[in-house]
Design a binder for these strands. Sequence first.
DNA 1: CTCTGGATAAGTGGATACACAAATCCAAAC
DNA 2: GTTTGGATTTGTGTATCCACTTATCCAGAG
Lengths: 223, 223
Amino acid sequence: MTGLSTSETFSSGTAEEEAYLYVLKAIRTGRLAPGTRLIPEDIAGEIGMSRMPVREAFRRLSTEGLVLIRTNRGCVVAGLSVEEIYEVFEMRSVLEGLAVRLATPRLDGDDFAELERLLARMQRGDQASDDWVTPHREFHEYLCSFSRRPKLIRQIARLHAAIEPYLRIWFHHAEKPVSADEDHRVILEALRTGDAARAESVIERHILDTAPALAAVVGETRQ
Amino acid sequence: MTGLSTSETFSSGTAEEEAYLYVLKAIRTGRLAPGTRLIPEDIAGEIGMSRMPVREAFRRLSTEGLVLIRTNRGCVVAGLSVEEIYEVFEMRSVLEGLAVRLATPRLDGDDFAELERLLARMQRGDQASDDWVTPHREFHEYLCSFSRRPKLIRQIARLHAAIEPYLRIWFHHAEKPVSADEDHRVILEALRTGDAARAESVIERHILDTAPALAAVVGETRQ
DNA sequence: CTCTGGATAAGTGGATACACAAATCCAAAC
DNA sequence: GTTTGGATTTGTGTATCCACTTATCCAGAG
């Protein structure tokens, strides 16, 4: 689960929903790179529907910041500038800080075990899929889910979706960001103490510290 | 300026934009109360267009949480439960905290004068319009604008739009929330010291402290 | 060769049309 | 009087169509 498929609209068999999930996945996985022009008719063709539901999916993606619609000029995948990457990380830092603060008192032994498991998957890049990003996201999402704040969780998921393509570039560019592994250990440790304020500040710091490295890689690939 | 009219889509003369702003305003001002069913055809009629652009406006509003779309069952104005009101205030507290932290070093004397002016308008309920909410929003928006973080500002505006109807109920129910006036003085004072961390925590506290009073009034009017 | 402008193609926003789902209403059965 | 089930109405989701805007391309002027 990604937290985004559960949007305000109940997911169900509508064409709009299908189009939304289809484009969302393509953007998150990087198949549709920032700047790519999205032509409703083409996408509609790919998944067998007319372009109306695709247009509506674009609206949703646009509000979520994943896509940019300019009047009469179509829809493009919304890249982030370096400043915007920092901005998204700043927002994530305080929102996930809040989520973790609320989650801390609700975690028990089994939950820590699950978090450890996700951490392990992350460290070995997971089964042959060569994917560090997915378990990383799952770690954060699993943690945030204990806040029991649906709107908060969804908002965090949206912000994550916006940076996910760049995380993948980072992962492929440098090797697996090794410093993050230590970070996550520290987070787990703080959580175990049950000190909500400390857990909050640790995760805030963790997220903010990730930003410059990511921004550097992205800035580099743009020259 | 509300911060919402400047959405991801450049505002311009499209029908969708017009429909969006029309419904947004109606919800914010309370003309369309939570739970009200929104029938695309009717709204389209009111502003002279077909229902397609109205539907697209609904999608946007839905993503912003102001409206709820259930498949094949139409669109209703999304009320907030008491828990959700708390949730929105929690999110606002950390996001506005961040915004104010970033804004603090950028404020100069003229800006304080403007903030004082907005505060004064707020205290006397503004010129006969009997409206405390608008200058209150403007105070917060003006302050946040100095953070220079477009996405952050927009997100805060969205959260504010969701609670604005309830602020109006509060304002009409009780008289002008007088405790808030003192709060805002304290905020200004903290800002003047230039201590970003202190300003951040003061505004976080201010926002969180507002929630219970509002929740109480709302819970009351629901029985 | 480069630049300009206008024809042509491509694509967007919006309106209309139609099939289907859900809600409503009403009458018959209990 | 209440309940049940089916016609009718209302409204939603999607496809198609049209008008208009923007992008592309190409020929002629410089």
